[in-house]
Design a binder for these strands. Structure first.
Lengths: 254, 254
DNA sequence: GAAATAGTGTCTTTAAGACAGTATGTG
DNA sequence: CACATACTGTCTTAAAGACACTATTTC
């Protein structure tokens, strides 16, 4: 398709020209929404990937995604992509970053607005994935803290997966965001079932952050946030002293 | 322009259909990059706005922006928009958020990938803006902390400006980001000249955060970061004891 | 010397880390 | 009763806040 972008009369007047110009007359990029669906499984972070059936990157693995429709918001596109691949509805999603490298898709210019989605393991267990076409890939993070960068995705046997497009960078951005916001936001609770023990919460933090945390101060700090409320229930049949169960409650206003 | 998006044969097979479909066959949104150019003036945060000459929102004020070109990255579009409006080059920019409400532009579907840009006042002073068409609007933030939400933009006489599109939300997102990252990143130094006093740095933090900070611990904390290096110079002719000048240096690796 | 901010030293308060010791389930 | 983790209490250490006091410059 030839470019329909006209050449402005001069560089100096270009900004005036652009302001006056109807945006629909410019050649437009395609816009996709790609979703990093994270969950915790066997004390490891996993993300949903789909096998591409076709060129480009045929046979390689990509994040679930969809092209944006003219009548839906970006969040709705993200929700639709998730619903189509997993059947899940009402999943927590948050916008991550928009990837705009010129050649990131070899076919044509495609921007990707990436979203982070979080579900807890019990909820994800109800999803039946098409056996050959989709899997939960384990995430291996080759950097520390919130340094950022691409991550590795592993199949259930621990072998690296061949991935499509810049999707290893997108998952890397998801980990960077999750690590950065874990301490001061309620993001992490989305990865736990509705009721959980303090130790499960601590293990979640350790898995996400990639290092151990001090048990005593972690418990003190979490209980001091006012975000936790004892359910009154206890663990059962756990082979040791059972822990109290808590639920997450949004901080009450002053 | 009629929609070119074909109706898939059934909802169940839609995801298969989308995967196989060439993205260039879908109707595409327009994509603009809008830039929040922040600077510090008279101990207040200001952002560059441009008067719209035409419908929609004729006469109202908008952020500098440009439609993305097929051969340039998002960062390049942001840099071009800044260059066209101000002549500034080599400005620090960081992606903020992508705004995708369906009706945010009444003409057609336009996504806006918003960027945050930071320059220090001395540098911005060299810019000559077209008197009637552009101004630095003072930002008034009606919320605390990193709560977020739209902000108010004021003209030089302190009167509220009528703004276009969702640009008050975009500037709000810029403030939220700046407040959130000020403490643990080097973002703030972009708003100061190459050499500055600890008091100027403190004042910057207070202006951005919207509240006073403890002088003693602020000085201790800043000097302990290893990000500051004494230039050996002092302030001159300041009507009181002159302070030592520092420059920002990136933390050296361990 | 008055005004104004720079800079130092030290005490108090608070949060984090360390660690000892007791508690209570399952097998 | 052995084991494993839950939970409490207290001491130590590090950071933040408070505050008194001294230091320099311009006017």
């Amino acid at each position: 398709m030839p470019s329909r972008r006209p050449t402005p009369p001069s560089a100096a007047s270009e900004s005036e020209f652009l302001k006056a110009y109807d945006p629909s007359a410019f050649e437009r990029p395609s816009v996709a929404v790609d979703v990093v669906l994270l969950t915790l499984k066997n004390d490891r972070l996993h993300t949903l990937v789909i096998r591409r059936p076709e060129h480009p990157f045929a046979g390689r693995w990509q994040l679930p995604g969809a092209f944006i429709r003219m009548e839906e918001t970006l969040e709705q596109t993200a929700a639709r992509a998730l619903r189509d691949k997993t059947g899940l509805k009402q999943v927590f999603v948050e916008q991550l970053y928009t990837f705009g490298a010129v050649k990131r898709d070899p076919r044509t210019r495609v921007l990707s607005v990436a979203y982070l989605a979080l579900v807890h393991a019990e909820r994800f267990a109800s999803v039946s994935l098409p056996a050959e076409d989709a899997l939960m890939a384990e995430i291996r993070v080759p950097w520390e803290g919130t340094e950022g960068g691409p991550v590795d995705l592993l199949d259930p046997l621990g072998r690296p997966l061949a991935t499509a497009f810049d999707h290893r960078d997108i998952v890397g951005m998801a980990i960077q965001r999750l690590r950065g916001k874990l301490d001061y936001s309620a993001l992490g609770f989305q990865l736990l079932p509705p009721s959980f023990t303090l130790f499960q919460l601590q293990r979640l933090h350790e898995v996400v952050l990639g290092h151990g945390v001090n048990k005593d101060s972690f418990r003190r700090r979490m209980l001091a946030t006012g975000q936790l409320e004892a359910t009154g229930e206890m663990q059962e049949a756990v082979g040791h002293r059972p822990a109290a169960l808590y639920r997450f409650v949004r901080e009450s206003a002053v």
